[in-house]
Nucleic acid binder design. Structure first.
Length: 263
DNA sequence: ATGGCCAATATGATTGGA
């Protein structure tokens, strides 16, 4: 079973790339972020035509998450618990039945948080605390769980080509990295790091200043796995070639393979 | 990490992104 995450930076602008990538990769589940459209405007038919069930949680203009799945959804829940006043569309959870068992998947678009001396950063930190609470609760279920998405967190210096440029940035501040470690320390496994210690594993390259051409990237898109998912872990791959396609997103897909029968 | 970008909005300028 192949489960992917991809921040597409507008699902409408990325429709051709997304369908081409799905045809090439044929993943079973895809978590999308920054769909940037309301649910009624989501181009569901394009994905349904490729054999996917589609769950969306969007808003006007920005943010927005979705999950595509070849197997049917048993449950779909939008919004991260812990703040009923939070209107930003950044979280969607689905329970998916496969012949090999049930998998729980969350599509996560964690706030950027810049600039750090504003309420944007306090919102990020509170959101991370809510995500930690969510993960603690879900892990008690002892299910295969994948928390996949754009975390807007550079976990370590080896996750940036030029770490000194990120000192003081909301993606790399000690408090940000500390919260991410607290999350992982609940017993989750970072899929890409389970597969490799290489320092050249980036998932984002800025559109500006020739960042892609210089390979000035960062690793901020992550798949965290519960122990029951990690037991079935086979591989993790960053599809970096997609960044060289015409009209690319600034993020590329990350694909995790789990050994689950019948998929 | 800014000289250089990209997407959405009732747009011809501003906001958000990372």
């Amino acid at each position: 079973m192949h489960i992917a995450t991809w921040n597409v930076n507008s699902v409408k602008q990325r429709l051709d790339s997304a369908t081409a990538w799905l045809a090439e990769r044929n993943p079973d589940v895809v978590c999308l972020q920054e769909t940037k459209c309301v649910d009624d405007a989501f181009p569901r038919e394009a994905f349904e035509g490729l054999g996917y069930n589609v769950a969306t949680h969007g808003q006007k203009g920005f943010n927005g998450v979705a999950i595509l799945s070849k197997a049917p959804f048993d449950e779909v829940t939008a919004r991260l618990p812990g703040d009923n006043g939070d209107e930003q569309a950044r979280f969607l959870e689905a329970v998916i039945s496969t012949p090999g068992g049930v998998v729980r998947v969350a599509s996560i678009y964690l706030p950027n948080g810049n600039p750090p001396d504003t309420e944007k950063y306090s919102y990020k930190i509170k959101w991370m605390d809510r995500l930690i609470d969510y993960a603690r609760e879900r892990m008690a279920l002892e299910e295969p769980l994948l928390m996949a998405g754009d975390y807007n967190v550079i976990p370590a210096a080896s996750d940036a080509r030029n770490p000194s440029a990120w000192v003081g940035d909301a993606l790399f501040l000690p408090q940000t990295r500390g919260r991410f470690r607290s999350l992982v320390n609940l017993g989750l496994t970072d899929a890409v790091r389970a597969a490799s210690d290489n320092s050249d594993l980036y998932t984002f390259w800025d559109y500006q200043a020739g960042a892609w051409q210089k390979n000035n990237g960062i690793r901020i898109d992550h798949v965290l796995m519960s122990p029951q998912a990690t037991d079935r872990f086979v591989s993790a791959t960053i599809d970096r070639h997609v960044r060289a396609w015409e009209k690319p997103s600034d993020h590329v897909p990350v694909v995790v393979e789990l050994a689950i029968e019948g998929t």
